[in-house]
Write a protein that binds this DNA or RNA. Structure first.
Lengths: 276, 276
DNA sequence: ACATGAAGTATACGCCATATACTTCGGAGG
DNA sequence: CCTCCGAAGTATATGGCGTATACTTCATGT
């Protein structure tokens, strides 16, 4: 069948380039997600943007799930290697960097779940957090738990921000416009005394930033834990075994009379050292 | 197109219909979601279970979005009216009740967003939390922020649990089975020193319960805030104006010499009261 | 020169929400 | 008693989705 269009293409060499690779597909999908949200990322849509058919993508990627895995890994930046001054400022910076990543790529929030296989960059971020928290001297299981807590907090706070932005784009209404139009809801709220009182006292006039407020509370909570652990878990300076702490009087330094004696002998036999 | 106004009407209204009625539809949908997950809730599926055509549902509910709104409020139990001993135990119980709700109805996690119109029960729960936190004496905006923080924490912790359970059902593999089979991932983890060390020290052998651990840290953080606010925001017992706190010596009780004198006069003139 | 196999394509299936236009049927009014 | 109305329920269609299957095209290696 004669096809003048096809002939023109061939003659003038403007035919769509054959050459579609994984990297291009992933980048295109990320671009689409950044600009129009995860909902805009469909195999059809990605292929359309690239000027290929839907099924052409399946030559390079097994399915949509895997495409999302690749997108996630591609945007996750590994941590820098500056050493933080202390665990608190380190965790604070780590949390802020996490929020920033979610803000750059809001679709990350919806795309990840507890079965998402982590890539090298994600693990590097996790390693970083562990090493920061390890400086507290907390026992291993608590280090993991603290990182899980702070990580969960960041994700949770990011989810609020990101959902709000997504809803604004999809509906064309800002947060304030949307809730401002819910008159039929507010009519019912008089029945709730504390809610009404707090509203009247201006509790909603200038809401505190949930991320900054929450982060400080969570870190305060971790600080409390660090202090407590320091207080009631002390170690014998000789053998390293735990020493029971009574909380009264001068803190014990040795776990037993034997260790105390060992330290004494070492002290008195050492040259150039005042005897105790 | 989701219609929040209509949802508000349905959630808060008292109108009832006959035949295939709203209540039946909502209950059926909840049942479906409880048993097979939110993914199983489609208009087709709900109608099929009820023995009607898909479109028959639209006689009673405007669309799927509104159906979800109704499902959400239907399963949200209003708070009891027992008075908590103190804000901390009150918030703790509130948080646990929240987690339990999510565990009873895991689909709640995925169904709600920041634009979900709250029904009477959800608002009652919010009111409850506000009244508990109000007992701390924190300023209004901080009360709201604390409730937001704890609510967010509960949702975040619930999301972990619920996603894990959902993934187990969908894949037929337990959490341990799934991650146990990721050998090709673990091969790469030697490069991360802290991660390896913590693993070797048994940091993953008996993980701390993320909910219980996190909740205590968050509440510790709130407690720190309450103490701090108490310390540097004190009020004159006579006129209520703020009193500057130096942090050293006996805390001042009066904002000025005038108030101190006023209190003295009142004290000495009161009958049946020892002069100070 | 021709087989091979990868790249890209066309079509189809079974899901989804829902718009539109229909049939059915109980009950109120004439 | 009949007629008509409006609500309840139905049938069909549209345009989206992921992807299975089977095809054409075409550069390359022998």
């Amino acid at each position: 069948m004669p096809d003048p269009e096809r002939s023109t293409e061939l003659l003038w060499g403007t035919r769509a380039r054959r050459g579609l690779d994984l990297d291009t597909i992933v980048r295109t999908a990320i671009d689409l997600a950044d600009r129009e949200g995860l909902g805009a990322v469909s195999m059809r849509r990605v292929a359309e943007v690239l000027g290929f058919t839907t099924m052409s993508l399946y030559r390079h990627v097994p399915g949509k799930a895997e495409l999302l895995d690749l997108m996630r890994d591609a945007v996750t930046t590994p941590p820098g290697d500056e050493q933080p001054a202390d665990w608190r400022s380190g965790l604070e910076a780590w949390a802020r960097a996490g929020l920033a990543l979610y803000q750059r790529h809001p679709w990350l929030i919806e795309s990840s779940g507890p079965r998402a296989v982590p890539g090298p960059n994600a693990v590097a971020q996790f390693e970083r957090a562990l090493s920061i928290v390890a400086a507290t001297g907390l026992p291993p299981a608590q280090i993991v738990a603290v990182v899980t807590l702070v990580g969960g907090f960041v994700e949770s706070a990011a989810r609020q921000v990101v959902h709000t932005i997504a809803a604004e784009r999809e509906s064309g209404l800002t947060h304030e416009e949307f809730w401002g139009a819910r008159d039929s809801l507010y009519e019912h709220l008089d029945r709730y005394p504390t809610l009404s009182r707090i509203y009247e006292q201006g509790g909603y006039d200038e809401p505190l930033d949930p991320f900054e407020f929450g982060l400080q509370r969570v870190l305060d909570g971790v600080a409390t834990l660090v202090r407590d652990e320091k207080r009631d878990e002390s170690w014998c300076v000789v053998c390293g075994d735990p020493v029971a702490v009574t909380g009264k009087g001068r803190p014990k330094e040795y776990c037993s009379r034997a260790c105390q004696q060992k330290a004494y002998r070492k002290r008195t036999s050492a040259p150039g050292r005042d005897p105790g």
